[in-house]
């Protein structure tokens, strides 16, 4: 079918329209608008518009996982966050994971503050991101973030080398990690139960009796009571 058949369906976008919606910023900074912001200005924005959810130091997990924490100066050198393999690290903060500073710029500008997205100016976005980087000890308090200095920041991102595309799940013909067994009989000698729901969690998802149909082959177990003997 020649697409000419569909003439009159859809129209050309105007430059203003594309500008209004094409706001994404890529890891190579394509799409990043010019502008700048200081750590100091960023602090003002953060404290008034962000801290209530993310905490004064970006450490809160009241509303979402912490933005700051778990990264070291060493990580900034290696580009790998060491605490990601530390079983004692309680949370995986944003800065522990994010490899690309563009991601933060793009997301803050498009979606934050959460209840008022699309309200930060370009400069304010630079500023508040500068402050986040300062809280993460990636830049100092004198830092001015702009479309040039952001490239330097990228070179210091703690987890910039922490990502891999070497896996079978990116493309459809990728290879799965492991394949199950097709054994049909006598496949295992002993079946050991390695994990069950702890007793104290029996009713943690509320009464399962009230999450199942009241007829049919099965009922929901009454989890407000101990199991029937």
């Amino acid at each position: 079918q020649d697409v000419k058949t569909y003439e009159g369906i859809g129209r050309l976008a105007t430059p203003n329209e594309v500008a209004a919606w094409d706001i994404d910023v890529r890891p190579d900074f394509v799409g990043l608008p010019k502008g700048s912001g200081t750590v100091e200005d960023g602090m003002g924005i953060w404290d008034t518009q962000c801290a209530s959810c993310h905490g004064t130091f970006g450490e809160s997990n009241e509303v979402f996982t912490p933005i700051i924490g778990g990264t070291t100066a060493k990580d900034q050198e290696t580009g790998r966050v060491a605490s990601l393999t530390d079983p004692n690290q309680p949370q995986r903060s944003t800065l522990m994971k994010v490899p690309t500073v563009s991601t933060l710029w793009d997301y803050i500008h498009r979606a934050m503050p959460w209840t008022n997205p699309r309200t930060l100016s370009v400069d304010d976005t630079y500023a508040v991101l500068a402050y986040i980087l300062y809280l993460g000890e990636i830049v100092d308090d004198e830092f001015v973030l702009n479309e040039q200095t952001i490239k330097e920041v990228q070179e210091r991102m703690p987890n910039r080398n922490g990502m891999t595309l070497e896996h079978g799940m990116w493309q459809r013909d990728g290879k799965p990690d492991v394949n199950g067994s097709d054994c049909m009989t006598n496949c295992v000698t002993a079946v050991e139960i390695t994990s069950t729901l702890p007793d104290y969690a029996r009713n943690a998802h509320y009464n399962i009796a009230e999450q199942n149909r009241i007829f049919g082959p099965f009922r929901g177990a009454d989890t407000t009571k101990p199991p029937v003997a």
């Binding site: 994404d24 890529r26 890891p27 190579d28 394509v30 790998r80 966050v81 060491a82 990601l84 393999t85 995986r92 944003t94 994971k97 994010v98 490899p99 690309t100 563009s102 991601t103 933060l104 793009d106 997301y107 979606a111 987890n159 922490g162 990502m163 891999t164 595309l165 070497e166 896996h167 079978g168 799940m169 990116w170 493309q171 459809r172 990728g174």
Partner: peptide, 29 residues
């Protein structure tokens, strides 16, 4: 576009942490 976009839900979430501390990015299928 000619390159992946590394959006928040590709660079901070929906990434799979492996035992060696790397994250698999763009796990899709």
């Amino acid at each position: 576009g000619d390159k992946p976009y590394g959006t928040k839900d590709e660079a901070v979430h929906y990434i799979d942490l492996m035992p060696d501390g790397t994250h698999r990015q763009y796990t899709t299928v």
